[in-house]
Design a protein around this nucleic acid. Sequence first.
DNA 1: GTTTAATTCTACCTTTAAGTAGTAATTATA
DNA 2: TATAATTACTACTTAAAGGTAGAATTAAAC
Lengths: 137, 137
Amino acid sequence: MQLSNSSQYAIRILAYMADQKDSELMNATELAEVLDIPYKFLAKIMTELVKVGLVVSIRGREGGYKFEKKTSEIMVSDILDIFNDSIKDEQCVLGIGFCNGMCKCALHDQWMEPKHLLQKMFRESSLEDIAGRGCKI
Amino acid sequence: MQLSNSSQYAIRILAYMADQKDSELMNATELAEVLDIPYKFLAKIMTELVKVGLVVSIRGREGGYKFEKKTSEIMVSDILDIFNDSIKDEQCVLGIGFCNGMCKCALHDQWMEPKHLLQKMFRESSLEDIAGRGCKI
DNA sequence: GTTTAATTCTACCTTTAAGTAGTAATTATA
DNA sequence: TATAATTACTACTTAAAGGTAGAATTAAAC
Ligand code: SF4
Ligand code: SF4
């Protein structure tokens, strides 16, 4: 009942980047150091973020990563999607989900409300919301 | 963002057992067959359920498993606890949770409500509630 | 052009969850 | 007492996630 490591790292990376508005371009070495994420693993994650178009990479000397879109337009759910961690509409709490609407277990209806709250939270919170408070996550 | 396989299986097993009130004692072979869970894996899970005292096992010929407590007294969260899948009070949505109360990200407060709903749901739903509807989960 | 600081790629290693196999122990029943 | 049916135990294998290493590639700077 938790996000994958990759999602957690990705969120922390992007939130940190969003915080450093002044220095547009951030390199992997610094990110890994300050966020205490294994350098190579971070690089792997960054590559995925680039592939999916959230950030762009500038290769070569003086290179680094920067946002492709405004941080207010990048939602947490966009990040979770990449690592297949977002909550699908049809997802059962238990993860079982054979049961059809006709024959519901006691949890079925109770799950709707927290599910919607979570989806709303992930879909409506942008990186700008998460960062921009002067504190690291 | 999902329960482990073991938790899912355990819930399905116990829910099925709860449904079969007539035949008190259920054996692993039948459970594995009807629930379509690998026999050996099921046996392993059952051993854990026995260890933790949710069910008792009768060994030897004509043996099997039966509940130790009333199914109305076994809560979903009791099962999740066994496989370390329940939602801890201090658990952050993102799973990060370095952040103290002083410096909260935008998700921090939004997470409280769905978290409490989920905890309540797991803690207050018994096996009797989940089963007893004539449908398999 | 060469050097150098940076990203990217491919392939591998490690750890944990999931699943399997075989055998020992237990007990009702014939 | 022998047999068959059943759980318990120990150890292994497989699959997936998490993480690492090193070479290849890129492009600024000199
Ligand atoms: S009825 Fe229960 S087990 Fe089935 S899909 Fe709904 S919540 Fe999941
Ligand atoms: S502030 Fe955000 S990241 Fe930190 S513990 Fe709270 S929810 Fe988690």
